[in-house]
Amino acid sequence: MSDLVVDCQGVTRVYGDDVVPVRALQGVDFGIAAGEWTALAGPSGSGKSTLLHLVGGLDRPTDGTVVVDGKKLNDLSESQLSDLRLRKVGFVFQAFNLIPVLSAVENVEFIMQLQGIGPSERRERALSVLDHLGLGDIGERRPGELSGGQQQRVAVARAIVTNPVLLLADEPSANLDSATTLELLALLRTINEERGVTIVTATHDPIVMDHASRRVLLRDGRIESDESVSSPMLPV
């Protein structure tokens, strides 16, 4: 149990009020082991994002417990959650991941600045991550000068540069064409396999699901199926 990076027990999340409750999650038990790449699948409105947010400390469950890296999130204060997001979790959202007034490399450095890492170390780490992800030549450009795919890749670089225990990506390919999506997935594959980063992606895009090592299908706020894939599709 303690070797799980994420451990959810009986997680329920109800939106709205008593009159018109929206049960986004209804008693989900769910764990993630280190090094896994889990795809949360399911139709729109099935609760993928809600679960991802709870796991990332962006939201609190109405009922049940969420444990991340041995910490029970229910007990954490607002600023402790903030700190957890900063130090333990890397986020890649559907869009608006980057600060428009900072260059790609500054965006990657930014999160290390928030962590209080000194200037020379963070510049070095930012450049090395960008280089590793094949983004070395666009480091000085601002997000407005990058394509959608490049922006998402910089967001991945920003998310992993702090060596988080968990990388969460919510519909990371929603704004990308299929070729660009494949590039992004290849990138996630690399960091999952080479760096051993634990990844959770919420998606209804079948291509994304095909790359994950485990597929968790949600329907109406419940886990319908949970299967490990022995040989996930190889990157193209």
């Binding site: 997001r85 900063l86 130090r87 986020f91 608006f96 600060i99 999160i111 928030l114």
Partner: peptide, 16 residues
Amino acid sequence: IRELGMLRAIGMRRGA
């Protein structure tokens, strides 16, 4: 708003 929301999401404190 969206940018500030993103910054809060990735762990920027309220004080910041």
